[in-house]
Design a binder for these strands. Structure first.
Lengths: 214, 214
DNA sequence: GTCTGTGAAGGTATTCACAGCC
DNA sequence: GGCTGTGAATACCTTCACAGAC
């Protein structure tokens, strides 16, 4: 049915955009909107209309010329393709400020993502509970059975690599890293890194060189 | 002197990498390393050796064949090009968990970035102080003089656009957005968005389709 | 006239490959 | 032998442009 999709693997950039579209669509549907044009969807998603059309085309989802795309059907399709209906377990390593913020952020806002464990090495924290999630000792991390979960690493840079090694041993295949350091992992493990300070340095540089771009 | 650099504008991806290199180099220098090869620097920075060479080539910084790059000199050059020696003021809007986490994260770890203000609409929070930074009311945001500062938006999605409008009025040119929503800004304002949940959804998708890549 | 469908084109980032130097 | 220097090649992502449908 969706040959185009199966033939071509979705790029991470595309996946991220689909997710954005899904949120925009939810809002539109809430507002009672039944259709949306590529121009509108582009504006609300901070991308271009051409890219929206191209994305939906890749998805194999057709709109109606002169009208636009059906919001309800489109959302359904995106949810199906991204697997957003399924609940995914997430563990967070590092119960410092950042780790806790991420954990609470995810427990409230993110449908389909469920924090099931928090790990920390600080004995003072282990055993306490945050937002209904117990903090466990990071000592025995490698011994946990963490297949099929997503792991968030929010430790200091120096601790990140050992933690990641243990996570991999425990069966983790997907890691979101907030520690400002490169991580070595086997080729079947995916790491995405978010560098908070780095983002600001980029902005800082662009501002200095004020980048006349558009 | 550095014709190559001035001729070609650095892309944001390159800037981010340079920043990563700088951190890696600091660590290496601390460890007493005087030279580093592109292969090593690539591993420590989670990129490829070819890309490291290409980056440093773009920078106009030469190494020694058979030996590598001089860590000290290279760091100096990167710091100079990125302007890392200068202190940049940062304001954070939204003193919820995420905003506070970011603020504290930046006050401790990030050299050259200085949080000068926190804003929130919650009257209960306004007036209190966090890590030496007073929380101010977000009501009068548009009236502040925020030229030349970087702004971090860590509000709920619904509040983000109004906040951004006010920041722009206040003179902000560079915004790091954590609210999961697209933002409309004048073309001379730069917005970079970090979507925490979005990153996890991407990982989730990749894991499901376990992406045989590499 | 509005808006999608879709291939072609453009631009950019990254990798290859290998010559040249230490 | 190890490693950089560097253009060529590749892959990827995004935009253009315009024909076709409502």
């Amino acid at each position: 049915m969706n040959e185009r999709l199966s033939r071509r693997r979705l790029s991470t950039a595309t996946i991220a955009r689909f997710h954005t579209y899904s949120r925009v669509l939810e809002r539109l549907i809430n507002d009672g909107r039944r259709t949306v044009s590529s121009v509108q969807l582009g504006q609300l998603s901070a991308t271009s209309a051409a890219l929206v059309r191209s994305d939906l085309f890749t998805l194999g989802f057709g709109g109606t010329r002169g009208v636009g795309y059906e919001t309800g059907k489109l959302l359904e399709r995106i949810v199906e393709v991204l697997g957003l209906e399924r609940v995914r377990e997430v563990v967070v390593v590092g119960a410092g400020r950042l780790g806790l913020a991420i954990a609470s952020y995810l427990t409230q806002g993110a449908r389909g993502l469920k924090i099931t464990a928090l790990f920390d090495i600080d004995p003072a924290k282990v055993g306490t509970e945050v937002a209904g999630v117990a903090i466990r000792s990071a000592e025995r991390l490698a011994g946990e059975a963490l297949t099929d979960v997503l792991a968030v690493v929010a430790t200091p840079a120096a601790a990140a690599q050992p933690v990641v090694d243990q996570l991999v041993t425990a069966g983790v295949r997907s890691i979101l890293n907030f520690a400002p350091t490169g991580l070595a992992v086997p080729s079947d493990v995916t790491v995405r890194s978010v560098d908070l300070a780095g983002e600001l340095y980029v902005l800082s540089f662009l501002q200095d060189h004020h980048d006349g771009a558009a």
